[in-house]
């Protein structure tokens, strides 16, 4: 046992020395998997001499869990989705960026500057944004698809052939838009209606899958499926005859953001990294690669031409409002958790 403790102490000492030795030369990024092209990382290192060390995660929730379980103090920045920025701020995991600390903050487009999930951008900058709704195979159905009925009250051609994301937040948000009720409702009749509506809609669904949301459309296993817009564009490129819907009832908007973490070991480098991502020429490289959208002004002329006319990225005039996923308080969330359990029981 004594040896064990000695080894542990030695290991932590060594790692402490290692991080002290190279502290001025790196930035530690906690990022989604495959969400930043190598080209851009190399450009950052070439311009600033700062090395990028990257760890990856596959969901907002698992990133939160690992930061809460002791990851704070290890990483400088991470890339949470909109609602997760708010949660992380509530949990006290984010550092505040003071006025003037980011030279390029003025490049943020006006509509993304004072956002509800981070008023006045105190902790975050935009990374990419896009939407979530659903896509329908035009081989299976040729009627109007710009309605949430496709998912929750589908035509006979699609019933039993629908894949939904295995993600409570997204399903609940779209279901609320379908019923025209607020996302964090405390009205009992509305909540009961939501519960009943999902219960009957589930009979029309074939599967709950997030990881394979694109594959089930490409393979034809599903004739309609909830999906992110960039994913749907990729499904189309891979040969699926699918069309992405912008329902008149509204659709889900999301934005991933770079946040400055509390106790960031390389705070100055983290700010340089954020400033780098606020340069139009850099964010254009990223956007051309992800096929989503940037929140930085001056990017548009630098984007690929195909991206400007991509149907998945350009809502038609009939599209309803874009809604971000809202963060409910504990008591309200408990009811939504119960409804989700009822859906999947």
């Amino acid at each position: 046992m004594k040896t064990l403790f000695r080894t542990t102490a030695l290991a932590s000492l060594l790692s402490a020395m290692a991080s002290a030795g190279s502290a001025d030369g790196k930035v530690v990024v906690y990022h989604w998997f495959e969400y930043m092209p190598q080209e851009l990382i190399e450009k950052f290192t070439a311009e600033t001499g700062i090395e990028v060390v990257m760890d990856t995660y596959d969901s907002n929730e698992s990133m939160l869990a690992s930061l809460k379980a002791g990851g704070i103090g290890t990483y400088d920045v991470s890339v949470p989705g909109d609602y997760m920025v708010k949660i992380m701020a509530q949990e006290g995991l984010l550092d505040t960026i003071a006025d003037g600390e980011l030279a390029n903050k003025g490049n943020i487009e006006a509509q993304w500057l004072d956002v509800a999930f981070d008023p006045n951008r105190q902790h975050s900058i935009p990374y990419q944004w896009g939407s979530t709704s659903f896509s329908v195979s035009r081989d299976a159905y040729d009627g109007d698809i710009n309605t949430t009925d496709i998912l929750f009250n589908p035509p006979a051609e699609l019933s039993g052939k629908i894949n939904v994301l295995d993600s409570q937040g997204e399903v609940m948000a779209l279901a609320s838009l379908h019923l025209g009720i607020p996302q964090c409702s405390t009205d009992r009749d509305q909540l009961k209606a939501l519960n009943a509506m999902l219960d009957s809609a589930k009979g029309h669904w074939a599967s709950f899958n997030s990881d394979t949301a694109k594959e089930v459309l490409v393979s034809g296993d599903a004739a309609a499926g909830m999906i992110f817009n960039g994913f749907s564009a990729k499904a189309r490129e891979e040969g699926a005859n699918v069309e992405y819907a912008y329902p008149t009832q509204g659709y889900i908007a999301w934005m991933d953001n770079v946040v400055l973490l509390k106790e960031a070991p390389n705070r100055d480098n983290a700010l340089k990294f954020m400033d780098f991502l606020l340069e139009p020429e850099n964010i254009a490289v990223l956007t051309n690669w992800t096929q989503y959208s940037a929140g930085i002004s001056g990017v548009t002329p630098l984007l690929d031409e195909a991206l400007a006319v991509l149907p998945e990225a350009n809502p038609p005039a009939t599209a309803g409002p874009a809604a971000f996923i809202e963060v409910c308080d504990e008591q309200t969330q408990a009811v939504y958790d119960q409804i989700w359990t009822n859906v999947k029981k």
């Binding site: 958790d337 989700w340 029981k345």
Partner: peptide, 25 residues
């Protein structure tokens, strides 16, 4: 999850949801 379409919780997925999912219980 993969073959059954994850339409119904099984014990394993129910437990997983409590730790990795939205419920966080």
């Amino acid at each position: 999850d993969l073959l059954g379409g994850a339409k119904n919780f099984m014990i394993g997925s129910l437990i997983e949801e409590q730790f990795k999912g939205n419920a966080g219980n």
